[in-house]
Amino acid sequence: MIKFQRFSVDDHNLSRKVYFIFFIFSFIWLMLIFLAPLFTALGGVFEKISHFIYMFFSKVCHQNEDRSFHLFGYILGVCSRCVWIYLGFFIGTSFYPLKYKMNNIGLPSLLYLFVAVVILLLDVMFDTIGIFHNNFFSRSVTGFLLGFVLPFYVIPGFVKFFDEVHSFVRNKLSYKE
């Protein structure tokens, strides 16, 4: 059986929208991480908002005081490794159009993702076993590496997903007409 692999979607406008939603979403996510301590420092209503931000991020991170960066005397929304994962993700998303067209659905070699995941896991494992204790630098570097490569695998998936959903809805509507 011959399979034809597509490397891009036809709807440029849709893929551009998907990319920009992705870009804005990752920016807002990153901003919230930094706004949490800022709002706490501002006090009043802002402090109440910061409680919700911390509560929200407690779902995705341990928020351990010793493993987190501080701003204005308060910890960021997530730990140091997560900060660099999300920062890397945002930078990777920003760099994405320089490497690929926005309507691309092809993936880079899996080796990059594999290496980034293995390095991060080794950093965690060695610390857990006690071979060497990781520090802010190792957590930041390993987190950034994984965060940076992830958009190159996730964005094509989302572009393809929305393209297929869009085609599906369009076909359904035209069928009804």
Binding site: L107, Y153, V154, G157, K160, F161
Partner: peptide, 8 residues
């Protein structure tokens, strides 16, 4: 996770 799975 699911879309990563589809791509991979």
């Amino acid at each position: 996770g699911a879309l990563l799975g589809v791509s991979l």
